[in-house]
Design a binder for these strands. Structure first.
Lengths: 343, 343
DNA sequence: TTGTAAGCGTTATCAC
DNA sequence: GTGATAACGCTTACAA
């Protein structure tokens, strides 16, 4: 093969020539500095600087069979839900000298397989997947490549997959129980779309379970499934309040839905939480600033990213790590949201 | 060199053997399917399927000198500011068969150089940078590697760098002029930190320019610089309202600051926009749901991502593209925010 | 501590 | 249309 396009940037052999050592020594100086004599090291570092040498990752990856890159596949980047987690993930990886390769699938299982294949093809040493429900072919692919991976934002009950997550169902039950303790009996839920999101499904199930333990059933008219958007939250609220009686407590599948629902309450002159208590998950800081005295459930979004990164990094170092890491959620009670006495 | 770790997953030569063709033909079948006989192609595709073959990107990159990966370096992922842009960027790239490699620098110029080097090392065919102000060494590095790049979220006046952005200064002037037209004369600004963010600086300058054209000066007590967080927005508002007289209009450097400022207004019983008009940039949908009748400035965050991707993709195809792409901003007037008549 | 050289899995040139 | 094979830039076993 003839040189197709002469390379313009310096390569390892250029550094070697300038420093008057072999390429092996330069390579060592770059990856195991303590294995070369300080004087030689200094000469090499000088040469690197002079030439502005930047290693060719593909060549390095091909020879070493490692990329120092971790892939992450998330449902969407379109709202802030996963921003905290991804940010923490990338920060922790960066500190360990790893790069994050990110892709999203927009809640489509086939797309998820496709983008994951793209990541594997691109070369990753480990993979972070969001949630526990995935295309079987996805796990096959991971298996075939012996790729270390971790599921996050949920816990896999089967014990087959490493997870760093929290119990969505228990969190939802807890929030429902809190509202029950306050005396609420008329509930509604604006849920995520359970068919494509097992976290949403678990939250709905958790609410249902807690309520039925008190003999309360969520009427079909009091439960709607919506995509995680503000306007869906508004719609959701108008739908669950369409009946003769208002629910006294509305539980939302996440913060985006909750904020939309609250906006609709404002628009309709429904007082929160005096008339209706709106509760959501995740980061409700904004909402609680606008509507003080809101009870919310905080998810450990940042820790999820940090711990997922740590889990993978530990495994890449060959350390043993627990299969399941369960992180605590936090119920944040900012005031009383008891049901109106009139009812 | 002996094989260090036997490879477990199938490689090109395995496919070739199974399909009874040469590796060259398999390679062709994968990248230029129309250049091989349909029958051969079918045999190869079958073999690929049987073996679950996934190409080795590093080897491919080394041989072809292309990675089909685009890098992007942004200030932060920690809030939703850039989520829209990144989402659109990644979506457009994905549709063209490219992967996004993402990194953030937390408003630190040195970190930016470091992470960019990491991206280049990992191998990228193009680079998206946010804003126009960067470490000189950064541009040197890009130059040395002849790496196609584009700056976004701002426009470089020097004409030296390809940009897909909008005019932050003009946008800020426009919002100030709108408020001036309504009769406001008492202004305050809660700005981003201008020293590390030239977009923030341009917005502040734009406001100053518009005001001084009307003989109005922003008093030092009426202007604060804050990081882009909700609590900083709250602090900012209490600081600019500490004086004897309230400003009638508060302009915020972005939506996060504005929402924080509005929360503080709520907490202090200051009516918006009746007593104070709060204005912010970017995505103020949430805020305007909570406080109807708000005037805001919408930035083309999604288009920024889409067009930046298109720009790079076109250049990678060897097409000529304009150096500067200016996207329009939009002033969204949702109601009147005239100053209170009593003043 | 350093050098030699094989090998990583593809692509692309050239010959057939 | 297909095959043989050099080359891509680096790492690492082994020799010195």
């Amino acid at each position: 093969m003839k040189p197709r396009q002469p390379r313009k940037s310096a390569k390892l052999s250029d550094v070697a020539r300038l420093a008057k050592v072999s390429t092996a020594t330069v390579s060592r100086a770059l990856t195991l500095p303590h294995k070369v004599k300080p004087l030689t090291l200094a000469r090499i570092q000088q040469a690197v600087k002079t030439l502005g040498y930047v290693a060719h990752g593909a060549a390095r990856a091909l020879a070493s069979r490692r990329t120092r890159t971790i892939g992450a596949v998330i449902p969407t980047l379109d709202n802030a839900i996963f921003a905290n987690t991804i940010h923490a993930l990338q920060k922790t990886l960066d500190e360990a000298g790893y790069t994050l390769l990110l892709a999203s699938h927009e809640f489509n299982a086939d797309v998820e397989v496709r983008v994951t294949r793209a990541l594997i093809e691109r070369g990753i040493d480990g993979l972070v997947l969001l949630g526990t429900t995935h295309h079987p072919g996805l796990f096959q692919m991971i298996e075939a490549h012996q790729l270390p991976y971790v599921l996050t934002w949920a816990l896999d009950q089967s014990g087959r997959h490493p997870c760093v997550g929290f119990d969505n169902r228990a969190a939802a039950s807890r929030i429902a129980n809190h509202l029950l303790d306050l005396g609420h009996r008329e509930f509604a839920m604006i849920s995520g779309i359970t068919a494509v999101n097992e976290r949403a499904k678990e939250r709905l199930d958790g609410v249902r379970t807690a309520l039925s333990a008190h003999g309360i059933r969520l009427a079909p008219s009091r439960i709607v499934e919506k995509p995680f958007t503000l306007s869906a939250g508004r719609e959701g609220l108008s739908e669950v309040t369409a009946g003769r009686e208002l629910p006294t407590a509305v539980i939302c599948g996440n913060d985006v839905l909750a904020i939309g629902a609250m906006a609709e309450c404002h628009a309709r002159g429904i007082a929160i939480p005096q008339q209706v208590s709106v509760t959501g998950f995740d980061d409700m800081e904004i909402a609680s600033l606008m509507t003080p005295g809101l009870t919310t459930m905080h998810f450990p979004t940042t820790e999820l990213g940090t711990d997922a990164a740590r889990h993978l990094l530990a495994r890449l170092r060959g350390e043993k790590v627990p299969l399941l890491t369960e992180l605590p959620v936090e119920l944040i009670v900012r005031g009383t949201t008891a049901p109106p006495p009139a009812r």
